[in-house]
Amino acid sequence: MTDNHNNDKSLPEQEGLDPTINQEEAPSENQPHSQAKSPDSNQKSDQNKEMDQTFDQETNNDLKEGNETQQQAPSPENPPNNSELPTQNQPTESDKEKAKKKAAAAAKAKAAAKAKAAEKATSAKAEKTEEEEELPSYNQPLLNKYVEVIKEHLGEDVIEEAYINRLSKHVPTIVTTPEAYYSVAQFLKYNEQLGFDFLSDYHGTDFETHYELYAHLYSLLNHQSIALKVKLDHEHPSIESLAQLWEGANWPECEAYDLLGIEFRNHPSLHRIFLGEEWKGYPLRKDYQPYDEEV
């Protein structure tokens, strides 16, 4: 038996709130009961609620900042943070009212424990990210170089966006226009300065407002990475195939065609690689309905 194991399985008498921590859907009857069992847990949970609010505000602000400064994918159907915001952001709400809302309390208890556990870590992290926000990333000069070279050769308007993705080990990320996608990819591969000859990953994502293709390129010459992205129209996603540049893009494109319904023009053999041609619908689309409900 390990320390960790024992910690995880602390008895309910010791931590009255524990059983309800993990789920919102838990039968709400459990909540008052377990609180009754350990009288001091009431106080505890109130404290935690406050902590939890501050914590959630912090993270929300954090996230917002991140979005404004960095990026990217306009969240289609609002992330949960926004929808939770109103309830979480009512510090004036009296404790009595809170007690009434049992289900909400359960959810908060969960968040409270989370806040408790992560409080130190997040506060430290929050400071850290703020610092980072001020400092340009260590990859910023590289990104600037790429953007400059591309603009010089292919024109000003081929790049929609260029930023450092701090979440992903600070990889320089470039979003191109669909029209210029192929030529940018070609340029990234064959330019002597850049030489991104290795296609590491290539896949698509349905962001509901648009499709996005993500290609992670690597230069075995310079040992540098770049993420090349392109946003596609949601109605008729269609783009020039990269399989002529990298043979390795052949199957990943078939995969994206099979599971997401993205059409690749001039692909040598575009087919439904996993599901077969008779399959109806594209499973990784967010609006996908399983064809046969029974299965």
């Binding site: 309910p12 993990n22 789920q23 859907e25 838990a26 459990n30």
Partner: peptide
């Protein structure tokens, strides 16, 4: 204690 955690996880 019928906390439902097992079936949720």
């Amino acid at each position: 204690i019928v906390c439902n955690q097992c079936s949720n996880i």
